[in-house]
Computed example of a mutant assay.
Amino acid sequence: MDKLENEKRLLEEMIKLYCKKKHGTEENLCPDCKELMEYAFYRLSKCPFGNNKKSCASCNIKCYDKEHKDRIKEVMKFSGWRIFFRHPIMTLRHF
Rank of each mutant, 00 (worst) to 15 (best):
Y39V: 08
T25G: 09
T25K: 15
K53F: 13
A57N: 12
C19T: 01
C56Y: 07
N52H: 12
G50V: 03
L17S: 02
W81N: 09
T25R: 15
E7M: 12
L36S: 08
L11P: 00
H68W: 11
L10H: 08
C19H: 05
I61Q: 03
G50A: 03
R9D: 13
F78M: 07
E27G: 09
E7R: 14
K16I: 00
I89D: 12
C47N: 15
E12L: 05
S55K: 14
N6C: 12
S55V: 14
W81L: 14
V75E: 02
K20N: 10
F84R: 11
F41K: 15
C33S: 10
R86A: 07
K8H: 07
R93V: 11
F78H: 04
E67K: 14
K20S: 15
L44Y: 05
K8T: 07
F78N: 02
N52V: 09
E13C: 09
L29M: 07
L92M: 13
D65H: 08
C63D: 07
I89N: 09
E12I: 04
N6H: 13
R9T: 11
K62Y: 08
K62Q: 15
W81A: 02
R93T: 10
E12C: 03
R82E: 13
P48I: 02
C19E: 05
C19N: 05
K3V: 01
M14S: 13
A40F: 03
C30M: 13
R9A: 11
N6S: 12
K22E: 14
H87W: 10
C30G: 09
K8G: 02
R43G: 00
K21T: 03
S79M: 07
R43W: 02
K46I: 04
K20T: 04
P31Y: 01
K8I: 14
K46S: 02
L29V: 03
K73W: 06
F78A: 02
H23T: 03
K66M: 10
R43E: 12
I61A: 04
E13G: 11
C19V: 04
D32R: 09
W81T: 10
K34L: 12
